[in-house]
Design a protein around this nucleic acid. Structure first.
Lengths: 233, 233
DNA sequence: CGAGTCGTTGATTCTTTTCAAAGCCCGTGG
DNA sequence: CCACGGGCTTTGAAAAGAATCAACGACTCG
């Protein structure tokens, strides 16, 4: 899950939870997750809906997924983005409290919660692992929350880019070259802004020399230090 | 922890996690938490700080605690409020990722994490319990996040009042009479607004007949339905 | 009773949204 | 191969919302 603030726990997460590795023999969750079946979804296809019985836990193998909620007034808000290696729905109660949708074509490992719960009852260390996963997700959600509550549009967009850059670094990709698999609307719904504002901020960053924008879906960071400063303000 | 949106899980939480009951014989976390020692803190006293080793878990017995973070630019943001029966720090990693402060004089049960982890290793059902607690806190945090991201100042303040009202109902207090143990600044820092805006919204609600404000620290709800509508918009 | 903190209210400024229109990219079909 | 169409993105101008700056009022604690 994408964390918008300091990378305090990202390193641990990389080694421990298992962000995608070149030839990963092991699932992010170890043996119980091996039991799962493969699910393939197309872009913009819903994986589950807010209110559904929380029957499965998913691990993203390929592609990108978002968790979102539709508010009473019809607005959509994206709560988080999930990348390969991330686990979705491990921390649900009886029903999912948000919907999940593929943003790109995705491959998922789907594991029934019943299996996970059974394994957990037998192996306490597994429960600890899930607890840690929950703590990480909670920390990331708090980061995002703080970012949304206290920051200007400029800082939000800068923080978003920096988060993606950090993520790239964590999985061994180029931290200076950010692919945006999501649309401006997705970004806006994630940051609590409008598409116009997101677009304007990106244009401003480009005008000021912080980034390059060869295509709408590709951001090249030219002054990471400068962007990081904006993100903090 | 205070949830700003639909009361989807609050009922379960009341019975399961154990919000304060008249003569509670049992701790919210059952026997392992019984091992803890009592801690008393004064108003505005910090209980732990962002970055401290996460050595203890706390259960609020009396009074109110907030979790907050100081942003790089010096701004404070309050992530959540904790009421009697709530548990703080159960979902930490190596160090706390936020600070906790008493808003009123508080009594806390303090339990070393080492003890909890030891119990958990022996009793899997305990781990499940903590996992559930984490899921509840995550859900509440997401609710708050969505509220912050997508709502107007008016809706945020209305949602805040409704959340407090629901909490009152859940613990058997009058849902129409809300005591505000926190200052306007606390509320503002929680909702991502300024104190002036919070004050103005409360004045507006009063002027329009939705609430009464006999004292700054007491809100009487006169039109809950109406407020709920505002909160959704 | 006085000082100081907290809360309210008003006027102004700034940011972001809203409304509107034009540009760009990409796939489709002629 | 090129023209066309549709969705996504960018940009501009106007309007709305919240923050800021400033002053006043109310309550609490010595």
């Amino acid at each position: 899950m994408l964390a918008l603030m300091t990378p305090s726990e990202n390193v641990a997460r990389d080694t421990d939870v298992g962000v995608r590795r070149p030839a990963a023999a092991d699932s992010a969750l170890g043996s119980p997750m091996q039991a799962g079946s493969l699910q393939v979804s197309e872009a913009r296809e819903d994986i589950f809906l807010d209110g559904d019985d929380a029957r499965n836990v998913f691990e993203v193998l390929d592609g990108i997924v978002c968790a979102y909620r539709i508010l009473p007034d019809g607005e959509r808000h994206i709560v988080s983005f999930y990348y390969p290696g991330d686990v979705i729905g491990h921390c649900s109660l009886g029903t999912y409290s948000y919907s999940a949708q593929a943003l790109t074509p995705v491959r998922l490992r789907r594991v029934p919660r019943s299996i996970i719960e059974r394994s957990m009852a037998q192996r306490p260390e597994l429960a600890q692992r899930f607890l840690r996963l929950a703590a990480l997700e909670l920390a990331a959600t708090r980061d995002h929350l703080v970012c949304l509550a206290a920051k200007s549009a400029e800082a939000k967009v800068a923080a978003f880019l920096m988060a993606l850059s950090r993520r790239n670094a964590a999985v061994g990709e180029d931290p200076g070259r950010i692919k945006l698999p999501m649309t401006r609307l997705d970004i806006a719904d994630y940051l609590g802004l409008t598409i116009e504002t997101v677009s304007r901020m990106l244009s401003k960053f480009k005008r000021k020399g912080f980034i390059d924008l060869p295509r709408a879906t590709l951001v090249v960071l030219k002054d990471m230090r400068g962007l990081a400063t904006l993100a903090d303000a």
